[in-house]
Structures are given as C-alpha cells and as structure tokens.
C-alpha cells in the first residue's frame, strides 16, 4: 500500500516510515502541515494518509481528514489528541493514539486496505 504521513514531528514521521516499510508498504510522502500537504495531495495517489491532528499550521488534522473523505479517499488519525479524534471518528477509517503502538498501526493499515475498492479492481 502507498501511505502518506501528515505529521509535524520529524521523529514520529521517521518512526512511522520505518514501521510502514518493515510491514512491506511504501511511504510516498510526508508534510508537517495541511497547507503543505494539500498541493501535493491534488496529484499524488496514495491508499492511506496517517494524520496527526495538531500540526505545524494549527489544529488542522480534522480539515485534512475531511478533505480526503469528501473525495472518497482514506485517512487515519495518529495523534495524542484522543478526544478530538474520537469526536471526529466518522472522518477516518481508524484512530491510533500516541505513543504509537505498532500493532495498532498495522491494524489501521489493514482496515484501510480492506476498505471500499475502486470499481474494476479485483
């Protein structure tokens, strides 16, 4: 799977990348703010975006998740803001709270992989 990381802490980005690659998936990009991610998201294809809620441009993670959902794309909150994430659970396929548990992250990736497939893909 192709996975994007929207996260403002570079250590967490790196940790996510390592876990994603170890599980046999690809990390196709990362950004520290929704404003920075948005122009990339217009053209970039990915199967899942891991989204922190509190980003470099403020509490914009919900906006990012909503933007993806409105376009039929898939996001997952990876955040220390558990309460905000649960209040907006309808925007994402799963919620992983920090500090990140690898099992929880892999479950979220599996959930995203099992989500609605585009027509024609077997």
């Amino acid at each position: 799977m192709r996975i994007y990381c929207l996260e403002d802490n570079p250590l967490v980005v790196l940790h996510l990348e390592m876990m994603i690659e170890d599980a046999g998936h690809d990390c196709v990009g990362s950004a520290a703010s929704f404003a920075e991610a948005l122009p990339q998201w217009q053209d970039l294809e990915f199967d899942l975006a891991l989204i922190d809620i509190d980003l470099a441009d403020g509490v914009t993670g919900m906006d990012a998740a909503r933007w993806l959902k409105e376009r039929g794309r898939v996001g997952c909150f990876v955040t220390g803001q558990g309460d905000l994430a649960r209040e907006n659970a309808d925007l994402v396929v799963d919620i992983v709270t920090k500090p990140i548990d690898e099992t929880a992250l892999l479950r979220a990736i599996d959930l995203a992989g099992a989500g609605p497939q585009p027509p024609g893909s077997a």
């Binding site: 967490v12 790196l14 509190d54 220390g80």
Partner: peptide, 17 residues
Amino acid sequence: NHRVKNILASVSSIFQM
C-alpha cells in the same frame, strides 16, 4: 500538556527506532 505529549511522542519514537 501539548508540549509534554509531544516530547513523550519524540522519546517513544527515538526509543523504538
């Protein structure tokens, strides 16, 4: 609270990696 959480996330990631 925000900063402590952020530092803990950093430390946790550093440790795991």
